[in-house]
């Protein structure tokens, strides 16, 4: 699997913004445990897919870019791929 540590770091730039939005809109309501809490987790998945999809796309482009830059030294790329 292609892995790079840089893409998630880049995506962290959005974190403070999202945090601010969340804190502003934060409302505390009592929890009623009669509903399967899976509902909220399913609602989250469109957002998660967007975030993770963006990260995967960024990583793909990043590794392509890296591939272009480091084309003359392919052994570097192999080492990065094996870094599991």
């Amino acid at each position: 699997m292609i892995r790079s540590n840089r893409a998630p770091r880049a995506s962290r730039l959005f974190a403070p913004l999202l945090a601010a939005l969340l804190i502003i809109s934060m409302d505390v309501r009592p929890a009623h445990a009669y509903l399967d809490p899976g509902t909220g987790s399913i609602l989250l998945q469109s957002t998660l897919a967007l975030i993770a999809g963006t990260a995967v796309t960024l990583k793909l482009y990043w590794s392509k870019l890296k591939g272009l830059i480091w084309r003359r030294r392919p052994e570097q790329e192999h080492r990065a791929d094996r870094d599991e």
Binding site: S11, F14, A15, L22, A31, H32, P37, G40, S41, L44
Partner: peptide
Amino acid sequence: LRLLSHVVLQARLQRQSF
């Protein structure tokens, strides 16, 4: 972003669902 989405946002959406 990962923690915010998988934990904080999930907890919030679960509360909203309740």
